[in-house]
Amino acid sequence: MEKQFVDLLSEELKLQETVGEEHIHHMNITFGEARRLASQYQKEAEKCNAATEICEAARERAEALLLKERKITSLWEQRARQVGWQGE
Rank of each mutant, 00 (worst) to 15 (best):
R61Q: 12
R79C: 09
H23W: 00
L37T: 15
A34D: 07
V6Y: 00
W85R: 14
F5M: 14
S74T: 10
E69T: 07
K68G: 06
A45S: 12
L9C: 10
C55P: 00
Y41G: 02
E21C: 04
F31H: 14
V6A: 08
E69R: 02
Y41N: 11
A57D: 11
L75A: 15
A51Y: 03
R61C: 04
S39E: 13
N49K: 09
Q16I: 14
E56F: 00
M27N: 07
V6L: 05
A34Y: 04
L9F: 06
Q40M: 10
E33S: 08
L66R: 10
E44N: 08
K47R: 12
A38I: 09
L37C: 11
A62Q: 06
E12Q: 14
E69Q: 01
T18F: 00
K47E: 14
N28H: 08
M1I: 08
K68F: 03
A50F: 05
E88N: 08
R35G: 05
T30I: 07
Q16V: 12
Q42M: 07
L9N: 13
A50M: 10
H23A: 12
Q86L: 00
E56L: 03
K14V: 04
E44A: 07
S10G: 06
S10A: 02
S10V: 00
S74Q: 10
A80K: 10
L8F: 06
M1W: 02
T30F: 01
E69L: 00
Q40V: 12
C55L: 08
K3L: 01
S74R: 06
A80I: 03
S10Y: 00
L9D: 13
E53N: 15
S39L: 03
E60Q: 12
E46I: 05
E17P: 02
R36A: 15
R81C: 01
A51N: 10
E63Q: 11
E77V: 12
Q40A: 13
E63G: 05
L37W: 08
G32A: 08
H25R: 14
T52A: 11
K14P: 00
S10F: 00
R79F: 06
T30G: 03
H25V: 02
E46N: 09
W85T: 10
E53M: 15
I24E: 11
R59V: 07
H26V: 10
E21F: 00
I29C: 04
E11K: 11
E33Q: 09
G87P: 04
E63D: 13
A34M: 04
C48L: 11
E56K: 15
A38G: 08
E56Q: 15
V83E: 06
Q16R: 15
R79N: 13
E12M: 06
A80N: 14
M27H: 14
Q4W: 01
L8I: 14
G20F: 00
A58C: 04
A64G: 08
R81A: 01
